[in-house]
Computed example of a mutant assay.
Amino acid sequence: MTLESTRRWLRGGLLTLAALQTFVSVWQYFGPRSFYDDFPTVELDPPYNEHLVTDVGGLGLALAATLWIAAWLIDTRVALAALTGYLVYAATHFAFHVTHFDNFSLGEALGVGTGLGVEVVLALLLLFSARQLHRAEKATA
């Protein structure tokens, strides 16, 4: 296999995985009840859904791993990818919580909203910094 054919195979595989993950994740995020009711076998899970919670924990660990690798390598392309993924997660997590404060006290709502908001702002600042650094590296290369 040539280098170019390996690169094409890798790109095709990554695009396939990205498309499959995007389909399921968009359905889960924007239609959680539909996903729960209509995805095969999900309705077989009990009301406390250990499977769902551990899957989300596993996804969080995967995201953490990409951030650790980005910090270790300090490669701006890896950092941009890791921070973009983190920002998508942090922003959607923030959006959910700030629209579901019905049973929260004012202090709880402020604490959760502020804590999650800080994560979004920090991710945006880091993403901006990584992009500026990437542009500077390209200009000097």
Rank of each mutant, 00 (worst) to 15 (best):
L15V: 11
E108L: 14
Q132N: 00
L17V: 15
I74N: 00
T114E: 00
G111R: 07
L126A: 13
T76I: 07
F101K: 13
S34A: 07
V42N: 09
W68L: 13
A79D: 01
R33C: 09
G115I: 01
E4N: 06
L44V: 06
A90W: 02
P47I: 05
L15P: 04
R7W: 08
F94Q: 11
W27S: 10
L67V: 15
F104G: 04
P40V: 06
L10F: 01
G57D: 06
D102I: 02
F35M: 14
W68A: 06
T41K: 04
F30Y: 14
E119P: 01
P47G: 07
I74R: 06
T54D: 07
T22L: 15
V42A: 10
F30E: 09
H93S: 13
N49T: 08
D37G: 05
Y36L: 12
T76V: 10
V120S: 07
Y89E: 13
D55T: 13
A71C: 10
T22V: 15
A136N: 05
A141C: 00
V121P: 04
A139I: 01
L127H: 09
R33Y: 11
T22R: 13
T54P: 04
A79R: 14
L44Q: 11
H100A: 04
I74D: 03
Q132P: 03
L87K: 12
W68V: 15
V42P: 07
Y89F: 15
T114V: 07
P40R: 02
L133M: 01
L14G: 13
N103S: 04
L126K: 02
A95W: 12
L87P: 12
T84L: 12
Q132M: 02
F96L: 09
E50G: 06
T6C: 10
V88Q: 00
T41H: 03
A139D: 02
G117H: 08
G117C: 05
N49L: 11
M1R: 10
L125K: 04
R77P: 00
L63F: 12
H134N: 01
V120P: 01
F128L: 07
A139H: 06
V98C: 01
N49H: 14
S105A: 10
F35R: 10
E50R: 04
A136Q: 09
E4L: 01
E4F: 03
T16I: 14
T6R: 11
D55W: 11
T22I: 15
D75L: 10
E108Q: 14
G13R: 10
L87V: 09
D37K: 08
V88M: 05
T99Q: 07
W9Y: 09
F104L: 05
L83P: 00
L44P: 06
W27P: 10
W9P: 00
F101I: 02
V88C: 04
L10Y: 02
E50M: 01
N49D: 12
V26A: 09
W72R: 15
G117K: 07
Y86D: 09
L73I: 05
